[in-house]
Design a protein around this nucleic acid. Structure first.
Lengths: 105, 105
DNA sequence: TGCACGTGTAATAGAATTCTGACATGTGCA
DNA sequence: TGCACATGTCAGAATTCTATTACACGTGCA
């Protein structure tokens, strides 16, 4: 089991993929790594919006971005998928909640 | 694999559990079925709010509610957990996206 | 020099979620 | 009769998420 799986962190991770738009991003990156502008074209999405989604995915650890030099010498920001597999059931959720700081109020 | 797993439906299902509050609800119900008012007390949550969360969980198929008669003859609304296990990886997401209506514009 | 293409971010509007508080209604019981 | 406890819903506030538009800046190249 994931050691540091609090309800908070698990929730953040799940929320990151529980979005149709971000699922599409992952689906495209699953086929091939692309740089931001190209990815935006494939998805028919504005770059600004795509950045927002990519940031969330990266914070949650599903993708990583890195700069790469193109043949022409231009810097391109490539994103690639980080392999993952999450299994959730009632017991896993209960465990995550149990690991929680219990900080309320 | 789930047959009717579109990005839309999978997203709805994931979004339902990707909430710390709803995780707590599931964690409590994992230990024992309770009626709404009692559940609200356990969680320190208003009934109105709890209803909202329970409705989402029920729509997503994680819990089911049913009326039960208490010893005293009062009707209590009990909720219990529906067993589930979801596994998500990049391939599953890509497949869900592929099953999609592709309805844009 | 100016165009095409790329990164990155700020401001803002719009939409959806979450949460609170109040209300109507019903039952058992002292 | 009145209190305690239950279900169920509504209106509105507060907050977060999503999306658009515009801007600043850099590089290659005809």
């Amino acid at each position: 089991m994931n050691p540091a799986s609090t309800a908070e962190s698990l929730s953040a991770r799940l929320a990151a993929i529980a979005s149709p738009q971000r699922m599409r991003i992952i689906a495209v990156l699953y086929a091939e790594s692309l740089h931001v502008s190209e990815l935006a074209r494939r998805l028919g999405m504005s770059r600004a919006l795509l950045y927002m989604h990519l940031t969330k995915l990266e914070e949650a650890g599903f993708v990583v971005g890195h700069l790469e030099m193109s043949d022409g010498g231009k810097a391109l920001k490539f994103f690639e998928l980080v392999p993952f597999a999450i299994t959730i059931d009632a017991a896993a959720l209960a465990a995550a909640v149990a690991n929680d700081p219990e900080a309320e109020t």
